[in-house]
Design a protein around this nucleic acid. Structure first.
Length: 451
RNA sequence: UCCGGAGUAGCUCAGGGGUCAGAGCGGGUGGCUGUUAACCACUAGGUCGGGGGUUCAAAUCCCUCCUCCGGAGCCA
């Protein structure tokens, strides 16, 4: 079924039995229908009544003000316009005009009909607390702010897929039900699994990407991951999305180059396609434009520790960045920054070590500016079988769980590297949100499982 | 898990031992020259988070439990 640009499927009588005469259009296309009579369907965001009545309508594609004048609309429609409640669904037709003050398209309504009523919509146009909003997450999604965030999230997801697809990567989906911890570093959700007894929800697709390297050269996975950590911070979810590319014949520097290209690809897309949404969020786009334009900063872990000390942190060499170390570091930074070559001690067992200093791991994290901190973590993978066996033992892992992983080294071993980017942290930074809980439609956190 | 804060109308909050259980928003009714978190008037709406205690008297003080928020830790 095909229809012309700006039209949506619909007939003279739509499914709700409401008569529609003029061609149905989506609000996002109104600019190209100035002067025409069109029909719209959607939900009432707000309605103001004076002699002339104003209905703020949204249809998911955008927002528009509809003007119902006593002399322009028929009597029943004018009457109805005075009784509309928040979030009732309506259909209307009228002429598309430019707003006398703002110049934005608005609708001079001729006819208005109710589709579905709405009594006492809980989320009123005033302030609400986060507890209440989270309890009403399904209804909260209708708000302008959530609309903007979720649409930007969508654009970021699409940009990520387009970036890797266009760069010769093959999608290699990683399993979500796994037999054991991938990295052995964090707590996993456990569930029953037939004869195996237990299965665990994946905390990373990383180990499943490496075997894809000899098979496809460049691979990526992009799906949900799970961490059962009791973390209660602005940057933690128990269920979050991660994109994890892995490539053959690549090292630490290649990871930083790839990650930077990907982030810039994402920024370019969002800035090109989501200006309206960024404006709704009152996001100052200057830092994003700067990140897109300039090369990302680079600093070794050792340099970062020195810098942190001058900024007042009590961190010592050998310790992982604490709670606010990333924040302190990135408040002082105007663009994303790679921090590389960490002490091996707090990194995953599969990390390659630095030939120039065996105490260091060939890892790199990308920290987002404006206080956001880590969005990407990755690096070069250890290639030596003997070294890996030693690391597995050292981390208290069972070698027989990893034989399939070690085969990557046994058969056609090559240098390879990759990274993982947490989608929600990227969305939070790009939208400049104070907390990741708004970056995903239905957040799962310690203490939040509903709705 | 630890530390701190908060639970009073549908929502956001004020009131902190004794004439008030209150305001704004939202709902209802009426008014209003194009409004935009519209505005104005009137109106309905409450087990002051649960339980226990102190007191002549508790929304208010004490204990306890629950929930949420912020932070720490853990982690990415």
């Amino acid at each position: 079924m095909y229809w012309s640009q700006g039209q949506v499927p619909g007939t003279m009588e739509d499914s709700a039995g409401v008569s529609v005469g003029a061609p149905l259009v989506e609000i996002r296309h109104l600019k190209s229908h100035l002067g025409e009579t069109v029909a719209l369907r959607g939900w009432v965001r707000n309605a103001r009544t004076s002699k002339t009545r104003f209905v703020e309508l949204r249809d998911g594609s955008g927002f528009v003000q509809c003007v119902v004048g006593a002399n322009d609309a028929d009597e029943a429609s004018y009457e109805l316009a005075g009784k509309l409640t928040q979030e009732c669904s309506i259909t209307l037709e009228g002429e598309v005009k430019a707003h006398p003050k703002t110049g934005e398209p608005e609708i001079l309504v001729k006819k208005l009909e109710l589709i579905g009523g709405s009594v006492d919509f809980p989320i009123t146009p005033k302030d609400h607390g986060i507890e209440f909003l989270m309890e009403n997450r399904t209804l909260w999604l209708r708000s302008k702010r959530q609309w903007a965030i979720i649409r930007i999230r969508h654009t970021i997801v699409k940009a990520i897929r387009d970036f890797f697809d266009g760069d010769g990567f093959t999608l290699l989906d990683a399993p979500i039900l796994t037999p054991s911890s991938c990295e052995g570093t964090s707590n996993l959700f456990e569930t029953d699994y037939f004869h195996e007894g237990s299965a665990f929800l994946s905390q990373s697709g990383q180990l499943y990407q490496e075997p894809g390297v000899p098979a496809f050269g460049k691979v990526y996975c992009f799906g949900p991951t799970f961490r059962a950590e009791k973390s209660k911070t602005r940057r933690h979810l128990t269920e979050f999305w991660m994109v994890e590319p892995e490539m053959a014949f690549a090292g630490l520097d290649d990871v930083m180059v790839l990650g930077e290209r990907m982030v810039k690809f994402i920024l370019e897309r969002v800035l090109a396609e989501k200006q309206e949404e960024l404006k709704i969020l009152e996001r100052d786009t200057a830092p994003l434009e700067l990140a897109l334009r300039e090369g990302f900063a680079k600093m070794s872990y050792t340099e970062a520790v020195e810098k942190l000390k001058t900024l007042g942190s009590d961190i010592n060499w050998g310790e992982d960045f604490g709670n606010d170390d990333e924040t302190i570091l990135m408040n002082a930074m105007d663009r994303p920054m790679w921090v590389h070559r960490f002490p091996k001690s707090f990194k995953a067992f599969y990390m390659e070590y630095d030939r120039e200093n065996p105490d260091l791991a060939m890892g790199a994290d990308l920290l987002a500016p404006e206080g956001y901190g880590e969005v990407i973590g990755g690096g070069e993978r250890a290639t030596s079988l003997d070294y890996l066996l030693e690391q597995i033992q050292h981390h208290g892992l069972d070698q027989k769980d990893y034989e399939w992983y070690l085969d990557v080294r046994r058969y056609g071993n090559v240098r390879h590297a990759g990274f993982g980017m947490g989608l929600e942290r990227a969305v939070a930074w790009i939208c400049k949100l104070p907390h990741v809980r708004e970056t995903i439609p239905y957040p799962r956190m310690m203490g939040t499982l509903r709705p």
